[in-house]
């Protein structure tokens, strides 16, 4: 081995776990524990339940009802994405007329919603002057498409779902935002627009996300559509998120 570590420059160019310490052929104890810790964070993000009461409290007078999908628990949620897209009966949503319905959904990382979602709402709503926005719904065991049924029940022209994304080893708390014009049952991913990786300080900031979302929402409303035809809006829908 050289006395100068040739890895210094390369490590600076990637988050990949290069140049790890070995014990014989295997990984050293320290590296194994680092990997285990990263995996544990991601696992806990998937399996920790959303504290809906805390979100409702943080939303204050903007808070609407807490609803649940037809997936009874996390195990069923993970195996039956179809149930996570359907609203459980007795949801208590009252029909009205709104330009926008906002739904905060646990998705695959309740932690992302717990840590970031209310802050995104705080940054976004002041940018939507003149919009009628329904009380913010909190949804448990929810996939992106559950927002469609919620919006139909509330009478919303558009729906914005803020949802915990699939956690990576280095990103257990990434929040995604999906907007859909004229939501209804059966909307597909290509009819939505997505802003992903909202997780300051490593990912998008709250203000940055709110800026992009406000522009997208305004443009979507003007063009009366969302999805792949809403061009120049950046990110495609990541696969596996729906």
């Amino acid at each position: 081995m050289s006395e100068v570590d040739p890895w210094d420059a390369l490590r600076a160019a990637t988050r990949a776990r290069v140049g790890l310490g070995r014990a014989g052929d295997g990984l050293s104890t320290a590296e194994n524990l680092r990997l285990a810790a990263a995996h544990a964070q991601a696992r806990d993000a998937v399996h920790t339940a959303l504290d809906a009461d805390a979100i409702v409290t943080a939303l204050g007078e903007r808070a609407g009802p807490v609803v649940h999908s037809q997936a009874a628990d996390r195990a069923e949620y993970l195996q039956r994405p179809d149930l996570g897209r359907r609203l459980a009966p007795d949801h208590g949503l009252e029909a009205g007329e709104h330009d926008l319905v906002v739904v905060l959904s646990d998705g695959l990382s309740a932690r992302a919603v717990q840590d970031h979602a209310v802050a995104v709402v705080d940054a976004l709503l002041p940018r939507l002057e003149g919009w009628s926005v329904a009380p913010v719904v909190v949804a448990e065991q929810a996939r992106v498409a559950l927002g469609d049924e919620i919006a139909v029940a509330l009478g919303g022209r558009m729906v914005l779902v803020l949802i915990g994304e699939r956690p990576g080893m280095s990103s257990p708390d990434s929040l995604g935002a999906y907007l859909t014009f004229e939501p209804r049952l059966g909307r597909v991913d290509s009819e939505r627009n997505c802003v992903s990786n909202i997780r300051p300080p490593d990912g998008l900031t709250y203000e940055g996300a709110a800026e992009i979302l406000a522009a997208l929402l305004t443009e979507s409303f003007r063009l009366q559509l969302s999805g792949v035809e809403l061009k120049d809006t950046g990110a495609a829908l990541p696969s596996g998120a729906g």
């Binding site: 990949a16 790890l20 052929d25 990984l27 990997l35 280095s170």
Partner: peptide, 18 residues
């Protein structure tokens, strides 16, 4: 993949050491 952690596809595969 390095450390078994694919930072592009966000999943865990095998490490070189494995």
């Amino acid at each position: 993949v390095p450390g078994g952690d694919d930072i592009m596809l966000n999943y865990q595969s095998l490490s070189f050491q494995d």
